[in-house]
Simulated assay, not measured.
Amino acid sequence: MVFAVVVSSIMLARFDGDGIRRDTLAALEAVSGRQWTLGDAVMFKPGVAPVLVLSDLRTPNVVWATRPDLLSVTRIEIESDWMSVLRRRPRIVALRLEGLELNLETGLDDNNNWGTPVPTITPANTATVSAQGLSELHSIELKNTRIRFRSGWGDIEKTYRIESIELRSSGVDSPLVVSVKAQVNEWPVSFSGELGSPAAMIGGGTFGVTLEGRYSGHESDAEMQLIGQVGALSGLRDIHLKFSLKANSLNDVGSISGFALPRDTPISITAVVTSSDAGLNLEDYVLRIGQAIIRPSAAPQRR
Rank of each mutant, 00 (worst) to 15 (best):
V253E: 01
L250D: 01
V73A: 05
R21S: 11
K158L: 15
E283W: 09
I293Q: 02
A127M: 12
V6Y: 07
R21C: 07
S9V: 14
S169L: 09
R14Q: 10
D110I: 02
A49D: 14
R214Q: 10
K143C: 00
T270R: 08
E29M: 04
A278G: 07
S135D: 13
G279D: 07
L70M: 09
A271T: 15
I289L: 01
P68E: 04
S216L: 11
W36L: 04
S80W: 07
I227K: 15
Q229T: 13
V5N: 12
L261Y: 02
S192C: 03
K246H: 10
I269M: 06
V272M: 09
P90R: 01
A299F: 09
S80V: 11
V286Y: 04
Y215V: 12
I289D: 02
S174V: 03
S257V: 13
G228K: 00
Q132E: 11
T206R: 14
Q291V: 02
S170R: 12
L100C: 10
G228M: 02
F15H: 10
D16Y: 08
L97D: 04
W114I: 09
V62T: 15
V184W: 13
W187T: 08
F191C: 08
G228I: 05
L226I: 11
V129F: 08
L245R: 00
H218E: 11
N281V: 12
E77H: 11
R58N: 14
P119D: 03
S174N: 07
P68Q: 03
F149W: 10
G228C: 05
Y160T: 10
I92N: 01
M224V: 06
I269R: 01
G290C: 00
A27Y: 03
A131S: 15
F3Y: 13
P90L: 05
V129E: 10
I156F: 15
S249I: 08
D155H: 06
R88W: 13
R89C: 02
I239E: 00
I10H: 09
T37V: 09
S275Y: 02
V273A: 09
A124D: 14
D18W: 07
N144K: 14
V5P: 05
N113M: 05
E163H: 13
I239K: 04
S170D: 14
T106C: 05
L137K: 04
V230A: 04
F3I: 14
S170Y: 05
T126M: 13
L261T: 06
L233M: 14
A247N: 01
G235W: 01
A292D: 00
I147C: 04
G208T: 15
D238V: 07
H240S: 14
F207A: 09
E186V: 13
F259T: 08
L226V: 11
E29R: 00
L250F: 04
